[in-house]
């Protein structure tokens, strides 16, 4: 049985004439340690799919299972616990809390856990060291560059050592060099056994993945191994 399974996932926003279908029966399965890129034009449903995978957005139909757990059969609090234990999020716009230092931002997922303050600090420092920011622990997000903010966001996503990393356009606001740096980091996490699902518009980024899901009009258009040349040809 696959680690992540999506069965007939559909999502419609609104009702009646204003109803807008974002997903129309998507099926997929992802194994542990896979690095999956999700691509597609704007409005194809890839962000909706990612939010469903993030246990943040209930599908209108279908089931989403992780490690055998039917996520949307859980209560709200159980889903929150699932997110904390299983998922790390990296968003396009960094999503660091502006009044917290990088180390405090990275410690956020640990805030609700019964761990000693020192242990939390050490875990955050270790995660920041992993992304090359061990010298900027006390900096506020607006005191570091965009690439460093994104790396801090990656550190926050992995501080809990979750098995799954969800990334939404992780290099959307970065220049090419910094993008490559961040993608190298994410790819290394995948190589270490983390399951990575990444939504991206960038063929270069998708090239780091081992598998590509193409979406169009709320449907899964193709599912296969990545081939950068094919991706770029698009």
């Amino acid at each position: 049985m696959s680690f992540i399974i999506g069965q007939d996932l559909a999502k419609t926003y609104g009702a009646g004439e204003a109803a807008m279908t974002a997903l129309q029966g998507v099926d997929f399965s992802i194994d542990k340690g896979e690095f999956v890129a999700v691509m597609g034009p704007s409005g194809s449903g890839k962000s909706t799919l990612l939010s469903i995978l993030g246990a943040l957005n209930s599908p209108s139909r279908g089931a989403f299972l992780v490690d055998g757990i039917d996520i949307y059969q859980l209560t709200s609090d159980q889903r929150a616990d699932f997110r904390r234990e299983y998922l790390g999020f990296v968003f396009q716009s960094f999503n660091l809390v502006p009044y917290l230092s990088l180390q405090e931002n990275v410690m956020l997922p640990l805030a609700t856990q019964r761990l000693a303050a020192r242990a939390k600090r050490e875990m955050a420092a270790e995660a920041l060291s992993r992304v090359g920011l061990s010298d900027k622990l006390t900096r506020l997000p607006n005191q570091v560059s965009g690439g460093e903010q994104e790396r801090a966001a990656v550190a926050r996503a992995l501080v809990n050592r979750p098995p799954i990393l969800l990334a939404d356009e992780p290099t959307g606001n970065l220049d090419a060099a910094t993008s490559a740096e961040v993608m190298g980091l994410i790819a290394s996490l995948a190589r270490e056994g983390m399951t990575v699902i990444m939504v991206t518009h960038s063929p270069e980024c998708a090239g780091y993945a081992s598998r590509l899901l193409r979406m169009r009009d709320g449907r899964l258009e193709s599912d296969g191994r990545t081939d950068l040349a094919a991706v770029c040809a698009g």
């Binding site: 609090d77 929150a80 616990d81 997110r83 999020f89 609700t112």
Partner: peptide, 16 residues
């Protein structure tokens, strides 16, 4: 609102 969204995304319960 956005900050609360982040909190919820990283595993904060409603009670938190």
């Amino acid at each position: 609102t956005a900050e609360i969204g982040i909190f919820r995304a990283i595993g904060f319960r409603r009670g938190h």
